[in-house]
Amino acid sequence: MKKILLISTILLILACNKKTREIRYYPNDEYSLDENVEIIGLDTTKLNFREITNKLEHHYENKTHMIVQFDDGNITKKILPHVYGNGLFKIKNVLKIKTDSILIDDGYQISELKRLLKRHYTNNGKIPYYSANYYQAAVEITIDTNNTGKDLEQVLKTVTRTFDEIKTEIQDSIKLNIFFSYFRQIPPPPPPPFNDEFNLYKEL
């Protein structure tokens, strides 16, 4: 009898946990996708950030969709990320975020994210190099190319949690558009070789 009660209790707890799990979509709940969408679970994928971004670019080129997904407490978060090339967002409307810093002004630590992200969404063109308005605002995730899916998940948890707090505070219909890009992590090409003959000619 005790075993039956124990099993019943466990099943009840599992059923309650299943019912209370929320699914949250970014940029918002309005988008609908076909059945052929590819879902990448960041907690289990073997792909690194470069490979995830390259796969996303491939989907864009073929006009198909890709979602990255992860669990954050009792919330399953599904993100439909972007890559550059469609011309929908101006550079100034995109706040660049690395693993531990934010690339705007002279740079900030990631601990300043809430203040800067809120400024980004509520700027309304006041500061020329922040977003022009809230519906054009977006963020870019730019982390090391070899970072794992779990590394990307941690950055996205920080960004989505912060965004959700801001959305609750300002009570507006803002959307979290997220770009993936690794080009800032690639070192620039070496300078051209020094040409003694050419420089001698210039001096003459």
Results as ranks from 00 to 15, higher is better:
residue 5 L to P: 09
residue 5 L to C: 12
residue 7 I to P: 03
residue 7 I to L: 13
residue 9 T to D: 08
residue 10 I to K: 05
residue 11 L to Q: 06
residue 11 L to N: 11
residue 11 L to W: 05
residue 11 L to H: 08
residue 12 L to T: 15
residue 16 C to A: 13
residue 22 E to W: 08
residue 24 R to L: 13
residue 24 R to P: 12
residue 28 N to M: 01
residue 29 D to I: 09
residue 32 S to F: 13
residue 35 E to V: 14
residue 38 E to K: 03
residue 40 I to S: 00
residue 42 L to P: 09
residue 44 T to N: 01
residue 45 T to K: 10
residue 49 F to L: 05
residue 52 I to R: 00
residue 53 T to E: 12
residue 56 L to N: 04
residue 58 H to I: 14
residue 58 H to D: 14
residue 60 Y to T: 05
residue 60 Y to E: 12
residue 68 V to N: 05
residue 71 D to W: 00
residue 76 T to K: 08
residue 82 H to G: 06
residue 82 H to T: 12
residue 84 Y to W: 10
residue 86 N to R: 09
residue 86 N to S: 14
residue 87 G to C: 05
residue 88 L to H: 12
residue 93 N to Y: 07
residue 96 K to E: 01
residue 99 T to S: 15
residue 100 D to F: 07
residue 100 D to G: 03
residue 103 L to V: 09
residue 105 D to R: 13
residue 106 D to F: 15
residue 108 Y to C: 00
residue 108 Y to P: 00
residue 110 I to D: 09
residue 112 E to D: 11
residue 114 K to L: 11
residue 116 L to G: 01
residue 124 N to H: 06
residue 127 I to N: 09
residue 128 P to K: 03
residue 129 Y to I: 06
residue 136 Q to G: 04
residue 136 Q to P: 00
residue 139 V to L: 07
residue 140 E to M: 08
residue 143 I to M: 08
residue 145 T to Q: 11
residue 147 N to T: 03
residue 153 E to L: 05
residue 154 Q to E: 11
residue 154 Q to P: 00
residue 156 L to H: 01
residue 159 V to P: 00
residue 163 F to R: 00
residue 166 I to N: 03
residue 167 K to A: 11
residue 169 E to I: 10
residue 170 I to G: 12
residue 172 D to F: 08
residue 175 K to E: 12
residue 177 N to T: 11
residue 179 F to S: 02
residue 179 F to K: 06
residue 180 F to V: 07
residue 187 P to Q: 05
residue 187 P to A: 09
residue 188 P to Q: 15
residue 189 P to W: 04
residue 193 P to V: 03
residue 194 F to P: 00
residue 200 L to I: 11
residue 200 L to Y: 13
residue 202 K to R: 14
residue 203 E to P: 11
residue 204 L to P: 07
residue 204 L to Q: 15
